[in-house]
C-alpha cells in the first residue's frame, strides 16, 4: 500500500523519512517555506527538525526568535548550496553615468505581484488562486514569463501576489517585503534617488529560463528604458 502522508489516514503508517520530508515540496504536506527539505539531504532535514524542536523548547521560555530564524536560514542555504543550471565566468558591467541621487531608478521583482483588476491570468485561467498555482509548477516552468506593470501610485489594497514557487505569506501581508514600492516612493521624495520609475515591474520567476535569457530579458530592458530607467533594483524571491 502506498502511504500518501495524509495525516487523516489512521491506518498504520509505513511512511519513510524521505517520503515525509519530500511531502513538504508540492506533496501531501505542501509548505513552500519548508519545501527545501526535499532539495537537501535527509541528514540536513533530520538535523534541522531536531534543532527546530530543541529551539522551540527555548523559545517558549525566553521568547527569543533569533536562533530559530538563523537555523532556518542556514538550513535553507545549505539545501540550495552550489551553482544552479546556469554558470557564467563573467558578465556585462555598466557604470552608472550619474550619482544614484540623480538617477531614475526602476524596480523589478520576480515575486508575482500584479494590480487588482489586471491579473495576467496565467494559462488563460481567470482568478487563479495561490493554491491552484502551486499545483502547476511544471506549467509555469515551461511558460513564457509575463511582466506585470504596477504603477507606483498603486495602493497596497490594490496590489495582489501569486506565485507557485514560494511562501507568499509575508509578501501578501506587506508588499514592501519583496516589492518595496512604498519605501521607494519615500526615497524618491527625500532625494535619495533622482526618481522612481513608474511602473514598477514584477513577474513569476518560476518560468522558462531559456526564453527569459535569450529573448524576453532584453525586451524587458527595452521596456524599462522606455519608461525612463537609468538604473534598477532587482529583487528575486
Amino acid at each position: 500500500m502506498t502511504n500518501t502522508g495524509n495525516r487523516s489516514n489512521h491506518e498504520p503508517s509505513k511512511e519513510t523519512f524521505d517520503e515525509f520530508r519530500n511531502s513538504f515540496s508540492y506533496g501531501s504536506r505542501t509548505d513552500l517555506f519548508f519545501k527545501w527539505m526535499k532539495s537537501g539531504s535527509a541528514d540536513l532535514a533530520a538535523g534541522f527538525l531536531q534543532e527546530l524542536l530543541d529551539l522551540t523548547g527555548h523559545l517558549i521560555d525566553d521568547g527569543d526568535t533569533r536562533p530559530i530564524v538563523e537555523t532556518i536560514i542556514n538550513a535553507q542555504a545549505e539545501a540550495y548550496a552550489g551553482p544552479g543550471s546556469f554558470e557564467y565566468e563573467d558578465g556585462p558591467f555598466t557604470k552608472l553615468d550619474q550619482p544614484v541621487s540623480e538617477s531614475r531608478v526602476a524596480l523589478l521583482t520576480t515575486t508575482g505581484h500584479f494590480v487588482k483588476g489586471n491579473d495576467p491570468n496565467p494559462f488563460g485561467i481567470e482568478n487563479l488562486t495561490q493554491e491552484q498555482a502551486t499545483t502547476m509548477t511544471a506549467e509555469f516552468g515551461r511558460a513564457d514569463p509575463v511582466l506585470s506593470e504596477i504603477p507606483t501610485t498603486t495602493s497596497a489594497a490594490n496590489t495582489r501576489v501569486r506565485h507557485a514557487g514560494y511562501d507568499i505569506r509575508a509578501s501578501a501581508s506587506d508588499r514592501n517585503v519583496s516589492l518595496p514600492i512604498d519605501r521607494m516612493n519615500e526615497l524618491a521624495d527625500e532625494g535619495v534617488i533622482g526618481g522612481f520609475v513608474s511602473p514598477a515591474f514584477s513577474f513569476v520567476g518560476l518560468t522558462s529560463q531559456l526564453r527569459l535569457r535569450n529573448e524576453i530579458g532584453f525586451e524587458w530592458a527595452a521596456r524599462a528604458k522606455a519608461a525612463g530607467a537609468q538604473a534598477a533594483l532587482l529583487i528575486p524571491i
Partner: peptide
C-alpha cells in the same frame, strides 16, 4: 536564476542594476 538573466540583460542594455536578495540563494 531568473533574476540573473534579467540582471545580465539589463546591464547589457545599459541599465546598471543591483540585486537585493536573501543569502539563501547566493
Amino acid at each position: 536564476m531568473s533574476v540573473g538573466h534579467v540582471a545580465r540583460a539589463f546591464e547589457a542594455a545599459g541599465i546598471p542594476n543591483a540585486i537585493i536578495m536573501s543569502k539563501v540563494f547566493r
